[in-house]
Design a binder for these strands. Sequence first.
DNA 1: CTTATATGAGATGATATTGTATCATGCCAT
DNA 2: ATGGCATGATACAATATCATCTCATATAAG
Lengths: 190, 190
Amino acid sequence: MPSITEERILDAARRVLCVNAGATVDEIAAEAQVGRATVFRLFKSRAGLLRTLGRRAILVTDQVAAEAAATAATATEALKAVITAVLGASEHYRFLGTAVELSEDEEITRAYDRQLSELADLVAAARREGSIRPDLPTAWVVAVIDGQLWATGAAVAKGAVGLLQAQELIWGTIMTGISAGKAIGYTNGE
Amino acid sequence: MPSITEERILDAARRVLCVNAGATVDEIAAEAQVGRATVFRLFKSRAGLLRTLGRRAILVTDQVAAEAAATAATATEALKAVITAVLGASEHYRFLGTAVELSEDEEITRAYDRQLSELADLVAAARREGSIRPDLPTAWVVAVIDGQLWATGAAVAKGAVGLLQAQELIWGTIMTGISAGKAIGYTNGE
DNA sequence: CTTATATGAGATGATATTGTATCATGCCAT
DNA sequence: ATGGCATGATACAATATCATCTCATATAAG
């Protein structure tokens, strides 16, 4: 059972690591308004803290995505719901983008690959429903969605757009782009 | 005038830092097949090497973007050309995404902000030409383009798609999305 | 052949961070 | 009040990395 202090440290670590991926235990403890010794007492080591944080990120994202998918009747709706929901949870995983140590952690990378694989399945299902351009490689579509999630998550964190606005815009942007043209079809726009 | 050795070190640093943002001078020197002392001789310090690398990235990106823009007759064409060209140069700046130390470097962050600002100007000009959805905030459009560049650059580096294919797909994806629908208009797809 | 220069290997000192241990303090329950 | 417990501050050792220095070697120019 995670204590209040534990939660405060985890939250602080998330915040600090987003800004400074190489943050020391000192800085994390300071952000959490907690002594450095407490961090080492509750988490075995810095790596342990990072690992806990990484597992949390994966759990939260999985859960949010699963809940979102459960509400949808079609794969396309599920895709939209998942994208919107995951964007809402970006604060929980955003630090992973720059967390060097975790990019070498087997468990984390495997979980991330699994999530991308599940996303690919969802994309494939939506494609079968006829809502995804058939000429685009699935890997490309997945990269686009993943990239859009990271980018708009960062934009929200920076304050460039609000989270609610981003959640309203992201699906439309991914699906129909930013073009003002209404019937562009499959050309590359040239 | 940068020596051959200098170039080898810079190239090696780019490669290593993409994989491991916290790479030590030892690792960089090893990748460059060069003694560690040589790195310190040619660049004053690790920070100096990083700064040189960062400046290089900005210079190359600026130059590539300027050349691309020069070939275009309209802002929309310029936007397309710039996006395609910058994607092609992603290997030169990709390490910046995880380079912790440089995210605190005034010169680098200012330059990056300037580039985003220039991109915003280009987007605004394209919008005046009627090619960008008028209801989308410019900040959002810029975030989308920036995110797409980072994401597809990463996908190319990972080998998920080829560079040429990515360069063919990115403009179409940004402009008209991944939807199979031909006349979706401005709704959010619900 | 000799000299100058660049290099690689390694020693060395300085510094920062991790992780452990100790001790005093404040708080809570009994 | 008092005993137990979590905490914060601090000291400490261990380690890693940076940065400098020295020296031997190789390579090219004269």
